[in-house]
Design a protein around this nucleic acid. Structure first.
Lengths: 248, 248
DNA sequence: TATAGTTGTCTATATCAATAGACAAATTCC
DNA sequence: GGAATTTGTCTATTGATATAGACAACTATA
């Protein structure tokens, strides 16, 4: 459904207020409301969704808490935050350059790093032996101070020893790979899915529980096709959309 | 998070049993369980997620209802359904050819059609005047008898008058466009997001309420760049993943 | 200054969600 | 046959979710 409409389901394990909050977020993110625009009054929303006014209030309260809406007694409820960020995905997907023009500042924060044996899917993606040592980086992408992605990245530990230090210093995957003599790389494959955010995502992305994350699982390769990086990234669906560009 | 793990959130508007059902679905879809494999016993799952056994039972009951699991008293609970379908997206995205090899039969069912004035976003996408007549098709993609997508598609009514009949006959967008002299077309842009399924999606895709859908908004163009089709498609996240291929 | 329109707060009630414990029923395996 | 394991059913209790109605507090404007 496009727009604010679409009906609401009961007894599904998702509370009515959460469903309504989702709808409102969706409408705002799709640009159905201008910034600072007033939402329809609570009574109208309640009637539109066929629920009690208090239920609508719960949804609004959650979004106010989240910083998306601002309620003013006597006046109305107003939209604070803007459209979703549009994150481009293609052969030359790069975090920083992808958000140019939409944000003034962006970087990748290294949350933690570790060395571990590769589980099957990591080993297959990187074309190394199962159980071989890999470096795992836990990172968060930030734009203008807001978290926009949460990623887990694996590198072959033999080839990229110390890449965690490079990441911590530079805040950029591209810059870190340059230190290992890789000046260009391509995205070989991306697989896309979606799910509810787990506790880790919620904390790192500053989400309200119940939020949805888009999940990309990707392999980056050198120009001659050698896999160098395997990553699972989570994007908050209410703040980010993914744009697949035909060119590149 | 990769796997069955990842913790559970309380007081978020999404019930615990729904969150656990999501996790189990995710794990099955990612291939963590073979077909006919036994799930860990309820007591184990309850401990793993830190909830009461009855809560796990609610999650399992929902999945049994949905046809994903089968519970047998005294024996265990078993996985019925298979891995997710992997739907490729690229410059030459086609419904039928994309699922070749994964399914034996697929077609697009026309649910309804209508002619209406173009709203702003449709007009912009098709590069026609706002309010100009467009044909809207409501369709469902089916593979081996199971619904895998639900789409709303718009065409310029002047250029594609009667395309709804072609769709009803052929069950294919590609075949229908051929009747209008279009033998090849490219996907110009795809924008990807995710949200909870609304009532319409739930019914058309045979989903349990609370399910998540992946949403693609795409424009198809002729080889010389003329927009011919604008579409919003919804895919059940628990049954379909989107694969972005580097080539094409 | 009234009045209409809006958000905020309160009380009450019913249903759903989650926990807790106990035991029955079916299966598997010794 | 008997023990261990597993799912199925039942009762009871607590807190979250949703409905209902009434009224207060604040804003804008006629």
């Amino acid at each position: 459904m496009i727009g604010l409409a679409g009906s609401i389901e009961r007894r599904n394990g998702v509370s009515l207020w959460r469903q309504i909050a989702d709808r409102i977020l969706q409408a705002i993110a799709s640009g159905d409301f201008l910034e600072n625009a007033a939402l329809p009054p609570e009574v109208v929303l309640a009637e539109r969704y066929g629920v009690n006014r208090h239920t609508v209030r719960s949804a609004i309260a959650a979004l106010v808490q989240e910083g998306v809406l601002k309620a003013e007694q006597g006046r109305g409820t107003f939209v604070l935050s803007r459209k979703r960020l549009s994150y481009p995905i293609g052969a030359r997907t790069r975090f920083s350059t992808g958000l140019q023009g939409q944000t003034t500042e962006r970087h990748i924060a290294l949350l933690s790093s570790s060395t571990e044996p590769a589980i099957r899917r990591v080993a297959e993606a990187l074309a190394i032996a199962k159980g071989a040592a890999v470096i795992r980086l836990e990172t968060r992408g930030e734009a203008d101070g807001h978290p926009v992605s949460r990623a887990t990245t694996w590198f072959d530990a033999r080839r990229f020893a110390g890449i965690e230090d490079a990441m911590a210093e530079t805040g950029s995957i591209t810059a870190s790979l340059e230190r290992f003599g890789i000046n260009d790389y391509l995205r070989q494959s991306t697989v896309l899915s979606a799910r509810h955010a787990d506790a880790d995502d919620l904390a790192a992305l500053d989400l309200q529980p119940g939020a949805i994350v888009l999940v990309t699982v990707a392999v980056n390769v050198t120009l001659d096709g050698q896999p160098i990086q395997f990553a699972e990234a989570r994007f908050p669906a209410e703040r980010v959309e993914l744009r697949l560009s035909a060119n590149e």
